[in-house]
Nucleic acid binder design. Structure first.
Lengths: 333, 333
DNA sequence: GCCCATTTTTAACGCGCGCAAAAAATACAT
DNA sequence: ATGTATTTTTTGCGCGCGTTAAAAATGGGC
């Protein structure tokens, strides 16, 4: 930087100021530095910069499972917004494992990030570790809420999701039963089950919850195996199945296919299947999956805005924001 | 570190040595440090460490599109292997955009990584930028080869993939036509098309390539729209379609479904569809997709081993390693 | 108990930059 | 032209650690 300052004819502290915020120097100076930059290709050393700055420009983005396109998509959106705001996002995935998640937070802490956007694993998370992390690092929790940790929570309105799609299913055919994992990985599942029960009761129908076995994050396979069992034992007392999430629904579709059941809204169909999440793949199942989609844009915008407000010092009281979803009516239900 | 060294009763340079390689200090000293570590929770400052070390312990992992579960899965595997070898992997996605890829490499360069595992976008990549990057940073190219850049290339044997699955299709029914994008995103597609043509000729059949329009990385939609057009115009002169990749096949399956065509091997089916890649989702399509799978384990192991050998100084001549795939016979063909 | 090879300690420099205080220069309004 | 507010320059410290050279301590073999 010393040498670069010399060739640009500007003092080093001013050049330093420029790199921290180009608009903080006079326009003329700025132009001269930018001109020199075009000729000399100098860039400040990240490590030296971060060692001295009290606040790094790094933002950690943590998701439970990057192999799931839902999380990949939300992570992508968050990443773009961070870059746009002048931060350097870094992506992390717990790969579905609580021990990975713990390690990851430990490494992340060492990066001294300005803030973290964290979607916790949920039930299996080490809550004590999460709590300690949130104490040390400005953290915004998204997707699934664990206690009242961090600066705030931003996610989807699971109750609205389930109520809305259950209402749609009731109005267009037999009232749905609810297909879910017995021990779901994340707390949204509980909210959805409860919302289903409430909705059905308010509509004057008997709720029926079918809970299947299965551990881990291989939801499609869990849905397929559980679907086979439920169909074999004739556990669905209605021709309409509302799944707790799209990946489970995709597995159930496969099970139906494997049993020769025709899926959809036509009179000759044996079963209607709906999901929840607006999974990127749901458009391409056969038949295309009726579901209710997260509002990726609004969720990510709210999350990032809230975090940046907090980083800039506007720390409000803990607050939970839940965004409504949009119904995607397709052929499966 | 000064303070931590003081409370452990060890000199700072020795503690520094310990953190670089715990086995480089005497067992007794090591135990004393580790005991102190259990009580005092000290960790070296990453930024200060990397500022002075000539070689960072960071490994960059770059994929063209993290939203594609194929890349997410291979990235996950690579990440685990890096951690296991004592490195700190960092994940990057070009999100399908060449300008993103360029920026990303620029930022990555600033991280001074020990090495990079790079799956380039392919056709749209700025090759000049890639070349410059590879000159500065030890880079191993995987998935799709661009010129003879970097230390080496590790990927799948596309010729073997296509030959193998084409052979299977020929032996079990009508010879396949080949369904692909006119301007495919990555060079593997060209290899697969050529291998298809060669295979068909060697089997004594007429090759037939159906190339559809479409730009970008939304392969499912491109396959669906292109599939509709091909089916409407009756472009497939056989009942068997071998797709250039699984995502295209998934789109074609959707198109077939939407046109009421029964897919599979049964006598009453109108069309057989096969893919290539062993996409994580291919098991759950309806019907499950016959495909030929990348050998994720071998590819990632070979890639990481090659990179680490080079980092440790064993730089061999540029070399291309291509791993064979495994046929997954399922119901779609 | 002595010698030698290895390891640890002591002391000190340097990495590349952020940051602060005081002095100098510049911009703008009157 | 004068005065004031803002920027820039000058000067220099310090961040937390890697690294080195020389001195001191340690360990194992005999």
């Amino acid at each position: 930087m010393e040498e670069f300052a010399a060739v640009s004819g500007i003092s080093r502290p001013t050049v330093s100021k420029f790199f921290n915020d180009p608009s903080s120097v006079r326009p003329k100076i700025r132009e001269r530095i930018e001109a020199a930059l075009r000729e000399h290709e100098y860039r400040p050393n990240i490590y030296a910069v971060n060692q001295n700055r009290k606040l790094t420009k790094t933002i950690g983005i943590v998701v439970p499972l990057l192999v799931d396109p839902y999380f990949a998509e939300i992570a992508r959106t968050l990443e773009e917004r961070c870059i746009h705001a002048g931060y350097r996002p870094t992506l992390f995935s717990a790969h579905g494992s609580a021990s990975h998640e713990e390690e990851l937070l430990d490494n992340l802490r060492a990066l001294k990030p300005a803030g973290v956007l964290l979607a916790p694993l949920g039930r299996t998370s080490n809550k004590e570790a999460l709590r300690r992390f949130c104490e040390d690092v400005p953290t915004l929790i998204f997707d699934s809420s664990v206690d009242e940790l961090g600066l705030a929570f931003v996610g989807s309105d699971n109750a609205q999701f389930t109520t809305h799609i259950a209402d749609y299913l009731c109005r267009t055919g037999e009232p749905p039963c609810f297909f879910e994992m017995k021990t779901p990985a994340n707390p949204n599942a509980h909210r959805r089950r409860q919302a289903y029960i409430n909705a059905m009761e308010s509509f004057g129908h008997d709720p029926q919850v079918v809970s299947i076995d299965g551990e881990g994050w291989g939801f499609e396979e869990i849905g397929r195996v559980g679907g086979h069992e439920a169909l074999a034992k004739d556990l669905f007392r209605t021709n309409t199945v509302l799944c707790s999430n799209d990946r489970l629904a995709i597995g159930l579709l496969t099970a139906c296919y494997e049993r020769g059941l025709k899926i959809g809204r036509d009179p000759d169909c044996a079963i209607r299947v709906a999901g929840q999440d607006g999974h990127p793949h749901s458009r391409y199942t056969c038949p295309p999956l009726t579901t209710i989609s997260h509002d990726y844009d609004t969720v990510s915008k709210t999350a990032v805005d809230t975090l940046f407000r907090a980083i800039e010092g506007n720390v409000d009281a803990w607050k939970s924001t839940r965004i409504e979803g949009k119904l995607l009516m397709r052929d499966s239900a």
